[in-house]
Design a binder for these strands. Structure first.
Lengths: 144, 144
DNA sequence: TGCTGGATCTTGACTTATTCCAGCCCATGA
DNA sequence: TCATGGGCTGGAATAAGTCAAGATCCAGCA
């Protein structure tokens, strides 16, 4: 059974990317903590391997997102976040107060979300759904 | 029949806001061109009334959004956009190539989108849906 | 109509997120 | 082992938006 390290190396190789300590650390940071921002990842990686440049983080994230390894989500009022759960059409639930974000499976189970009522001639390839509300903690803390 | 000007004045008054040339121009800019960015609005207003500060635009947009007159949407990779069609639970369709954005009515007609499969205890108050794809022009220009 | 308080606007600096650039470094394939 | 190009670093630049202080304007009231 391959270790996580080997796994991540394989992921990089499979996409024809060089295997570097920085990229492995970025991969790890995203799988350990989904929904992290680029800056979070920068800090985590820096703590882990000692040093990395901002640019390397952005490069790695962009490359991995481009290859479909990561998915980039950018809710209103927040900087971009990255997650490694891709291809299963899940959505996100975000607390308006504290910003906490959790995954939600597609409301209807399969991918009906892709069917807009009137597509205006567009070729739709993704439906992104974000639910806004208050998380249990915030709701309890300030019960309207 | 009230003119557009009178209408907009009424909107401001109804929400207890002062009626100023800047705000009327912002209201007009948003109704004339939905999905405009703050910067677009800044330019349009400036062309119309001669001068306005960046801050006044942001203030007006924030105040009007707060009062529910405007809705703010911020698709990934774009700056915030504003529209005056509120309260009808419609969604957006965005072209990945050119960024063109159009309205789409709610896929199912009413608001079932608000029902997530598992709400993780959140109190959900809005479901924001963005369809990503290619607009007819871009699809025609680069037929994969 | 004139006054006054508070809302609104202007100006300008600042913050945050992200990208650009130039040059050095190192993973990879021969 | 070695050449090479992709990758990394550090620094500067840009874009979007926010903050703060003081000037100005609107709306209600005498």
């Amino acid at each position: 059974m391959p270790s996580e390290l080997t796994d991540n190396q394989a992921v990089l190789r499979r996409h024809g990317m060089h295997v570097t300590a920085q990229r492995l650390a970025v991969l790890r940071a995203v799988s350990d903590g989904p929904h992290r921002t680029a800056d979070d990842i920068y800090k985590v990686v820096r703590a882990e391997i000692g040093a990395i440049s901002h640019q390397a983080v952005y490069d790695s994230l962009a490359a991995l997102t481009d290859k479909g390894v990561f998915r980039r989500i950018q809710p209103a009022g927040s900087s971009a976040r990255y997650e490694n759960r891709v291809g299963d059409n899940h959505h996100h639930l975000i607390c308006r107060r504290c910003g906490r974000m959790v995954d939600v499976d597609c409301a209807v189970g399969y991918t009906p979300c892709l069917t807009a009522d009137d597509d205006s001639g567009y070729e739709i390839d993704e439906a992104e759904v974000i639910y806004w509300g208050r998380c249990p903690q915030c709701a309890a803390a300030a019960p309207v």
